[in-house]
Design a protein around this nucleic acid. Structure first.
Lengths: 192, 192
DNA sequence: CCTGGCCTAGATAGATCAATCTAGAGAGAA
DNA sequence: TTCTCTCTAGATTGATCTATCTAGGCCAGG
């Protein structure tokens, strides 16, 4: 049983890594299995639905993990405004450290499937919605008016996702730096 | 000659449409040629480098076209702040009208190729840089301090790209609406 | 000991992919 | 007309993709 779950988890981990870097269509099942040291049989045993089922589970799993990671940054210190700025800076540092590979784990896939694979599109929508409601609650807990909180959460997460696009394409953290500063300003203004 | 250029342009137009909706890896050459009513021979006559050369030219072409489209919105009226808000609203309307298919023409491809295809990554980086410098100049021309202009341009474009991700995944213009309002506020504040 | 369920293992099939190749249509110049 | 160049046309090739299939290893319960 332990060996079983280890194989399944290894497959999921490798999938998340490759989907993040190359997207869904650009990643072959063979490539995933090779890197995970797993045979074909294991994949179709653990994921009878094939690549799509693997992708759906990877999206939800990686989405939850990333939510935890970001939440950790946003709760790191007592000052939310400083935490927001630090979160953007940390995301930029991760990009530099990973040769601009490790940005948002589901962004590329979300764009790929938005008009081509409805079940997977729903999986990405669920993940995004969970991020939004989490950040909205955090803003409300930090004296942002309820009416303003959700739009502000939308703006912060949009800026982060958009900055990832510019950062990876340009191999620069300029967009992340600019967005971090601007989002900190917006949060500070909304806390009044 | 006229028929020639028509075939080439038809291939480029269809490529832009499909890359935007399905990404690069998710779009087959065959699918492009079928929809463009063109045979294999024509593709490899006009683009000897194959799919990669077609993609590079599509990225630059679609990027330039989209820059013109957005610039048109940002110059539509006398008030830049109002124009920014209107540009986000217009982008949302386009998404609704096209069943959330027509967002940024190169965003999906940019994420796909960022760590997998260096020539294409450079093409996307060039397009983004041209958008940035164009918007920066527009901000400067509207009384935004030179030091603030480029970061602000980064924030605005990042918010737009990020909002596209949320909009397409969630089939909602909520993110675009929130970002439009926030970006208008930021521009107004920077103009002082 | 041995038997049944869970998981690993990889060969194989069948579809689809990008790319090449040969052939011919069409227009303009001599 | 006849030659030539440009572009169209699609069959074909070889690689690669996802998925299935059969077989065997491993471990727990009887």
């Amino acid at each position: 049983m332990s060996a079983v779950n280890k194989t399944k988890e290894r497959i999921l981990d490798v999938s998340a890594e490759l989907f993040r870097q190359q997207g869904l269509a650009g990643t072959g099942v063979k490539q995933i299995l090779n890197r995970a040291n797993a045979p074909f049989g294991s994949l179709y045993h653990h994921f009878p639905g094939g690549k799509d089922e693997l992708a759906a589970e990877t999206i939800r799993r990686a989405g939850a993990q990333y939510a935890e990671l970001v939440a950790g940054k946003l709760l790191a210190g007592p000052d939310l405004v400083a935490n927001v700025r630090a979160a953007f800076r940390s995301a930029g540092q991760t990009l530099v450290d990973t040769d601009y590979a490790d940005a948002c784990p589901i962004e590329t896939v979300a764009l790929e499937v938005a008009n081509t694979n409805e079940p997977l599109r729903l999986a990405t929508a669920e993940v995004f919605e969970s991020w939004l409601s989490g950040l909205t609650a955090l803003l409300v807990a930090n004296d942002v008016a309820k009416k303003k909180a959700r739009p502000l959460a939308h703006v912060i997460l949009s800026a982060l996702e958009g900055a990832f696009v510019f950062a990876r394409a340009s191999r620069s953290t300029e967009a992340l730096d600019a967005c971090g500063a601007a989002m900190a300003t917006l949060v500070a203004a909304a806390k009044s």
